[in-house]
Amino acid sequence: MNAWLMGADVLLFTLVPCGIAVFRGNAIERLVALEMAGIVQTILLVFLAEAFHRPSTYDLALAMALLTFGGGLVFARFLERWL
């Protein structure tokens, strides 16, 4: 049990309010909660990669950081325009 793992444990529970907001609340709230969950997950992946002592798995956090922006854009554009 190292500090990174404990940090990840704590950070995991910050996903709970995000989850609640994703399933309740209006369109904007849901979208913001999803984006927040993406950010939390990026940090969590960094923490876990450090906790497991596997530097090669930092790729995951990088992928998440790059793609979560695109995902947010998908929802923003479609919710705005059509749905």
């Binding site: 497991f52 002592h53 596997r54 530097p55 090669s56 798995t57």
Partner: peptide, 9 residues
């Protein structure tokens, strides 16, 4: 056990 990647281990 760790992941089955032996890049740094």
């Amino acid at each position: 056990a760790g992941p089955p990647v032996f890049a740094n281990v």
